[in-house]
């Protein structure tokens, strides 16, 4: 599994958000994306998910330009910006309904994901009664529960207590072997000890800093 980002630029209403980005993301590594808020990290992640189209350049998944093919990336899960779920049902029911779309996992995998995010004891609580941190944990559980090949996490540790953050970091390090894991944050400390390779976003450009 390989993602190649070739000469990608993105602009909105003639304002350049990203300019000539060239990176290759390979299996077995955790990639950290650092940059202040508004530096283009989320736009970049949305392009990786095929929600945004590059103004120029191309993004290839194992050599296939999925945007041209009118597809979303295969075996990929993401949490970008705020998590969003159905408010009037429980966290567990939300995950169960999402899992039923592809029907590749069952109850045990959902419970496992909730356990990994320290949300198991709150699984039957309504989503609307969750705190910000719990909502974030459910967003991460949604990403990891189906064991995807590519995980995209935007500011994953926002609002999460240290104990869970440590547990998640350990889990991500163990899981990276056959995966591409991409984590974006504006906080350097969130990324430094975790990522194998770090790219810093600044003024529309990207620079490898580790």
């Amino acid at each position: 599994m390989k993602i190649e980002v070739r000469n990608v630029s993105k602009s909105f209403k003639n304002i350049d958000v990203l300019r000539n980005i060239n990176i290759t993301l390979e299996q077995g590594k955790i990639y950290g994306l650092i940059g202040r808020n508004g530096s283009g990290k989320s736009v970049f992640l949305k392009m990786l998910c095929a929600f945004y189209e590059p103004t120029s350049g191309e993004i290839l998944y194992d050599g296939i330009n999925i945007i041209k093919e009118k597809k979303f990336p295969p075996n990929t899960r993401a949490l970008i910006e705020k998590p969003s779920f159905i408010p009037d049902i429980s966290g567990y029911e939300n995950l169960e309904l999402l899992a039923s779309i592809q029907d590749i996992i069952g109850r045990s995998e959902i419970i496992d994901a909730l356990e990994k995010t320290n949300l198991l004891s709150e699984k039957d609580k309504k989503y609307s009664d969750y705190s910000l941190g719990m909502k974030q944990k459910l967003g991460i559980a949604q990403v990891i529960m189906e064991n995807p090949n590519i995980m995209i996490l935007d500011e994953p540790f926002n609002g999460i207590e240290e104990k869970t953050a440590i547990k998640l970091r350990k889990f991500l390090k163990e899981e990276k072997t056959n995966k591409i894991i991409i984590i974006a944050s504006h906080i350097k400390d969130d990324i430094e000890g975790l990522a194998d390779i770090i790219y810093t976003f600044d003024d529309g450009t990207i620079k490898r800093t580790k």
Binding site: P73, R77, L79, S84, F85, L98
Partner: peptide, 13 residues
């Protein structure tokens, strides 16, 4: 508008 990744990474358009 919100939670696009929940649905669109699991099903085709």
């Amino acid at each position: 508008k919100s939670g696009a990744e929940n649905l669109f990474l699991r099903m085709s358009y």
